[in-house]
């Protein structure tokens, strides 16, 4: 198809954010080599971090970063869904509630009182929740932040009407494909890789660190078996809980394991 006729029918892309750090949408701007080709294939209609220009919806593909933490967020995500043909959530906040979901395990009012001098100005929810708890989501892209190659593949897959080529298996598979020696078996380093969703390319183990679980739980995991292994290797209970209570603290398998090892 000639480029000119395709351009007239370019689908419209929107990028929205709720409670988040902006790191995931920055991953799109990080696609420096590919950005012009992306902009040629899809109209960047609403992306406040990239441009002041905003084209009204509806949008063909909407990327949403961030979690729902306020009554206003909960309202806004319904409006966003209403103007989006395909809605893809990107990053740990949008897919599991993010690090701010630590409030789910604490007394949110007490936290607010401890942090803000005038909490009465604040309207916040007791929990931080993923977008899929509020509206229908077409695809969830994991990561804290998302991997830019995977983000590109989601956009390309949308443009060509195929499934994203993104595996939901463990980080271990990425380590072994790369030839990275297992930090847990060879060095005794606690690593969340065996229960964590692939996507980062085994970044931390390749640099001799245990996996921090940025991509959340893999497709069918036994987090309890890993928690037990950490304990058996001498990791104190509280540290096991903290290992599971990070960027994807509220994802069900990690939340349960955090509870099991948490201090009373």
């Amino acid at each position: 198809m000639p480029a000119s006729s395709r351009r007239t029918r370019r689908p419209k892309l929107a990028v929205f954010k709720l409670a988040s750090c902006d790191g995931c949408q920055l991953s799109l701007l990080d696609c420096e080599d590919e950005l012009l080709a992306v902009a040629d294939a899809i109209e960047i209609a609403h992306f406040p971090e990239a441009s002041r220009r905003s084209v009204r919806g509806p949008y063909d593909l909407t990327l949403v970063e961030g979690s729902v933490t306020t009554p206003h967020d909960a309202e806004r995500i319904r409006e966003i869904r209403g103007v989006s043909r395909r809605l893809v959530t990107i990053g740990a906040c949008a897919t599991s509630g993010g690090i701010q979901a630590l409030r789910n395990f604490a007394d949110a009012d007490a936290l607010v009182a401890a942090v803000y001098p005038r909490p009465d100005f604040l309207r916040t929810l007791a929990t931080s929740t993923p977008i899929a708890d509020h509206v229908r989501v077409d695809y969830e892209l994991r990561g804290c932040p998302v991997d830019k190659r995977e983000l590109l593949d989601v956009i390309i897959a949308f443009l060509h009407d195929r499934r994203p080529a993104i595996a939901s298996s463990s980080v271990c598979i990425e380590c072994k494909r790369r030839g990275t020696v297992c930090v847990m078996v060879a060095h005794g380093t606690p690593c969340l890789g065996p229960v964590t969703h692939a996507g980062c390319g085994a970044l931390c183990p390749t640099y001799d660190r245990g996996c921090y679980g940025c991509f959340g739980p893999a497709d069918s995991v036994n987090a309890a078996a890993l928690g037990d292994a950490f304990r058996a290797a001498g990791t104190p209970s509280g540290e096991v809980a903290r290992a599971f209570r990070t960027f994807n603290a509220a994802a069900a398998p990690f939340a349960a394991e955090g509870d099991r090892h948490g201090e009373a």
């Binding site: 992306v38 040629d40 294939a41 595996a167 298996s169 598979i173 497709d219």
Partner: peptide, 22 residues
């Protein structure tokens, strides 16, 4: 896999495992 324009596609083969759901 495909590039953005759809002008190029390629097939990749990777180690996989009967332990994954996919």
């Amino acid at each position: 896999l495909t590039d953005i324009t759809g002008a190029t596609a390629w097939r990749e083969r990777s180690w996989d495992s009967c332990f994954t759901m996919d």
